[in-house]
Write a protein that binds this DNA or RNA. Structure first.
Lengths: 101, 101
DNA sequence: ATTTCTTATCGCAAATATACGATTGGTTTT
DNA sequence: AAAACCAATCGTATATTTGCGATAAGAAAT
């Protein structure tokens, strides 16, 4: 991908919205978030049983959701409990809301 | 990407939402949609002047937005006028709305 | 201390996305 | 019929994403 030396300057909300959208741009990640919303929280292992995907693949999707800020992990040794990050969730919600007016 | 022979079955809304999210997963496309929302409609050439990107790149982004159903092109020879596809826009809007509750 | 359990990370392969310049296709004007 | 204009598509290069199995890392239980 040949890129401009000077990267394009977008408004900050534009970047933020695109980043959230990217996190939502895969059905598995949507499904994970829906699952988390129902269950409040859950462990990686729970998801591995729900989805016909390898543990490493689930872990990768969780990582992306975490990087986007939509979820957070809490140590419950020896497991890790994942929950929605309400603060960022609300930010994402309002960004989408105002985008669609 | 090694894929399962039997692809995962997601709920249809999940697939639809992911598809819309994917279309929004790039700041340029967000910006294009915002521009369209302000201007009502515009031509490809207008966008090429607004963004420091090649005409072919803009055209590619428009194609993706069109494939996702978020915009539509109307022939205004020798130009093509792009507008928001209100019907699908509203579908996307409500999908995101209900996703974030 | 060793084994077990859970999750993350590494390394790889294949697919998709992003960007560009060059070319093509269609319409309008000359 | 030819030239000009506009946008799409092609071809190519590179980056990122998606998936898997294998391995590593951490704490808990034995």
């Amino acid at each position: 991908m040949k890129r401009n030396l000077e990267p394009i300057e977008y408004k900050e909300n534009t970047e933020a919205l695109a980043k959230f959208a990217k996190a939502l741009a895969h059905p598995t990640r949507i499904a994970i978030l829906k699952h988390l919303d129902n269950q409040s929280c859950c462990f990686t292992g729970d998801l591995v049983e729900v989805f016909p995907l390898a543990q490493s693949t689930i872990s990768q999707h969780l990582k992306e959701l975490k990087n986007a800020g939509l979820i957070q992990g809490e140590l419950k040794p020896p497991k890790i409990k994942y929950c929605i990050n309400q603060e960022n969730w609300n930010i994402a919600k309002s960004l989408f809301q105002q985008f669609f007016e």
